[in-house]
């Protein structure tokens, strides 16, 4: 088996040197067994596995054994292969537990829908010899947008007027991308900060990971819209604010907060950012407050959200100029 891989690598990528040659997998059902040095063969294409992808949260690496970082031997390009893993798990959003499902089928369908649209990660899906739908994803060369924003070293006011208008303009486009999904009866399903990336070269924002599906009562788009709102509040604030980290920006200043100043779901997060930064336009803060514990009316569509958000861009630009 090792010889087979060695010969394949030698033939297709003669300059590639790896520490170990494994075996060729045409059936990816048992993805835990597939590791460094193995090759996944899909139709007539070959993908050399480098490692399992991992998610970092709270400084801990959580390996995703069904997601393989690979080299496509025919082209030499880096690819991510997402293998089939049917998982039902609980998404915890504040106090709510939401049963979620991982759906390769959904992700494959969305990849087809958004082909050529730079606002989304790109890829194709192919079946292995057992019919497992493997998604072959182009690597997004960039970094998480929230990290990019957080690492800008400048006071909030300067950030808000100099950097944020450009960020907001692109974020609005990212919202339109989600609107496009919804118009096509699809949802992203997991809009959170680590799923919107900024490409190094183009500076474009790119949505990743569309394989979450979940059950809903009446509005299938609510979870996506809440995700967009939370992301907007993060971007406008340049970070998350809780009672615990407020002293960094308030210093000795004393401000009183009420229940309605906090997020509807993440009960410790302040969403009434205008209380912290009075130069944030009222019109924009009104949008934030639709995601607060005081909200009585909620956005039902991304179009409603955008109708409020788009005018804010001009308001901020004009405020900056004045």
């Amino acid at each position: 088996m090792s010889n087979e891989v060695q010969e394949l690598v030698k033939r297709l990528r003669p300059n590639l040197s790896i520490g170990q040659y494994g075996r060729i997998y045409r059936d990816t059902t048992e993805f835990m067994k597939i590791s460094y040095g193995d090759v996944i063969a899909l139709e007539d294409q070959h993908y050399l596995v480098l490692r399992d992808e991992a998610e970092r949260s709270f400084g801990i690496e959580d390996p995703k054994y069904w997601v393989k970082r690979c080299i496509h031997l025919e082209s030499g390009e880096r690819k991510i292969l997402k293998l089939v893993f049917y998982e039902k798990f609980t998404l915890k959003l504040g106090d709510l537990d939401i049963p979620c499902y991982r759906s390769p089928r959904k992700e494959g369908r969305i990849l087809d829908l958004v082909r050529g649209d730079s606002r989304f990660m790109q890829g194709v899906s192919k079946k292995d010899e057992k019919g497992n739908l493997v998604r072959i994803i182009d690597v997004v060369s960039g970094k998480r947008l929230d990290h990019h924003v957080f690492e800008m070293e400048m006071p909030h006011r300067e950030y808000f007027f100099k950097e944020f208008p450009g960020i907001l303009e692109k974020f609005i486009d990212s919202c339109r991308a989600i609107e496009f999904l919804h118009e096509n009866r699809e949802i992203h399903g997991d809009i959170r900060r680590d799923h919107l990336w900024r490409e190094y070269k183009s500076g474009n924002y790119v949505w990743i990971d569309f394989d979450y599906a979940y059950e809903f009562e009446e509005n299938p788009f609510g979870l996506d819209i809440f995700g967009l709102g939370s992301l907007l509040i993060y971007l406008a604030g340049k970070q998350i604010y809780t009672m615990a980290n407020l002293s960094q920006i308030l210093g000795d200043k004393d401000l009183e907060f009420e229940k309605q100043d906090f997020s509807l779901l993440y009960k410790n997060r302040i969403v009434n950012l205008r209380k912290l930064f009075p130069y944030i336009p009222e019109q924009m803060n009104v949008i934030f407050m639709h995601f607060s514990q005081g909200a009585e009316v909620f956005y039902e569509t991304v179009s409603e959200f955008l109708a409020d958000l788009e005018p804010c861009l001009e308001i901020i630009k004009n405020k900056e100029a004045s």
Partner: peptide, 10 residues
């Protein structure tokens, strides 16, 4: 309220 936002209410 959170459930209503996320899942909608018939």
């Amino acid at each position: 309220k959170a459930e209503e936002f996320l899942f909608g209410s018939i």
